[in-house]
Simulated assay, not measured.
Amino acid sequence: MLQMKDQLQNFLRCSIGNGNRALFWHDYWTDLGPLYLMFGPAGPRALRIPIDATVSQAVSNGNWNLPPARSENAVTLHIVLSTISVPVSSDVEDAYAWRNRSGGFAASFSSKTTWERIRIASPPVLWHSVVWFKEEVPCCSFISWTAFLRRLPTRDRLISWGLNVPPGCVLCSAADESISHLFFGCPYAVAIWSRFCGRYMAVPPASLSDVVVLCRQLQGPHARAVIVLKLINQAIIYSLWRERNARIFQGVSSTHQAFFRVVDRRLRDRLLSLSLPSVTAPSPSLLELFFCFLDPYS
């Protein structure tokens, strides 16, 4: 509760009108901040003002109705209140203002601005644009994001939590399952990646960082090809994760060829749904660039 009040102190201010809405103890309506934080739990008893009272309830006969000051905090409050107009019933309603982008306060609330001020910003990771981009497929982006964070519950991770599960990769049974092995080191995964080793990708990537490096290398005149590469990366990771789960939980598996057809169909459907290039600046469509990724000898 105190943490929530601290947040309000930083982001919310109240301008007193008739005092019927503003809470005497909890709202930031004086320069002292929320008075409950200043006086503590004993404040309502010391000032004889209920904990849920509004500012107007601290007024009687046109004057602030407070007992004589018996502490330094009470003296300070008396001084501050002497500079504030006593609210009367004929005044306008109390108004609340939220901190804005410039650091001041405005009547409208912005969740984006508030979030930017609450969060602890960290340096952008190099792979953020490989996961989040305009042409992404949300379900594939989510699994890719979780993979980059190394939060997918692969068997090595489950074992590190103390679970009794077999460590072997269900796709190849040749090594222990991990993020790097499942998506790039497993022969099953390598065979799928190899199907896309055409003009823009000479060899299958060995890790997620290799995909990031390749995307950075394809900038400039090949910028549109980067979009296709990002989609290929996400489609393969997403489909491999589904294949892995299907084998574990459903006992069904796909051959390399059947798996490739699923990835190929998913990519073509997505690329066909994207807007075509401008007629005034003709360039290969994303689907045409996709064909450049396909291995001509597969």
Rank of each mutant, 00 (worst) to 15 (best):
Q3W: 08
F11H: 14
S15K: 11
S15N: 13
N20P: 01
N20C: 05
H26F: 15
W29T: 15
P34I: 01
Y36L: 13
F39C: 07
G40L: 03
G40E: 03
G40Y: 02
P41Q: 00
P41D: 00
P41K: 03
A42K: 15
A42W: 06
A46L: 09
L47D: 06
R48K: 12
R48C: 10
I51T: 11
D52Q: 11
D52V: 01
T54I: 06
T54Q: 12
V55D: 05
S56W: 03
S60H: 11
N61C: 09
G62P: 07
N63Q: 13
N65Q: 09
L66G: 14
A69V: 10
R70K: 14
R70A: 10
E72W: 07
E72K: 11
N73P: 04
L77M: 11
L81Q: 04
I84C: 12
S85R: 14
S85F: 00
V92C: 05
A95R: 15
A95V: 12
Y96E: 05
N100P: 07
S102E: 07
F105R: 12
A106E: 15
R117V: 00
I118S: 05
R119H: 09
I120S: 15
I120E: 12
I120C: 11
A121K: 15
S122E: 15
V125N: 03
H128T: 14
S129L: 05
E135I: 02
V137L: 10
V137P: 10
C140W: 11
I143S: 10
A147F: 01
R150N: 15
D156F: 03
R157D: 03
L163D: 02
L163K: 07
L163W: 08
P166L: 01
P166V: 00
G168N: 10
C169N: 08
C169P: 11
L171Q: 02
C172V: 07
S173A: 14
A174C: 04
D176I: 02
D176K: 10
L182G: 02
L182Q: 03
C186L: 08
P187T: 03
V190W: 13
A191S: 13
A191D: 09
I192R: 09
S194G: 11
C197I: 01
V203W: 05
A206C: 07
S207R: 04
D210T: 00
V211W: 05
Q217K: 09
G220Q: 10
A225P: 10
L231F: 03
L231R: 04
N233I: 00
Q234H: 04
I236N: 06
I237L: 08
S239C: 11
W241V: 07
R242G: 04
R242M: 04
E243C: 03
A246G: 06
V252L: 07
S253E: 08
S253D: 09
S254E: 12
T255A: 06
A258K: 07
F260Q: 13
R261L: 05
D264K: 13
R265Q: 11
R266F: 01
R266N: 05
R268Y: 02
R270V: 08
R270G: 05
L274W: 04
S275G: 01
S278R: 09
S278W: 00
V279H: 07
V279T: 12
S283N: 01
P284S: 14
E288T: 09
F293E: 09
L294T: 12
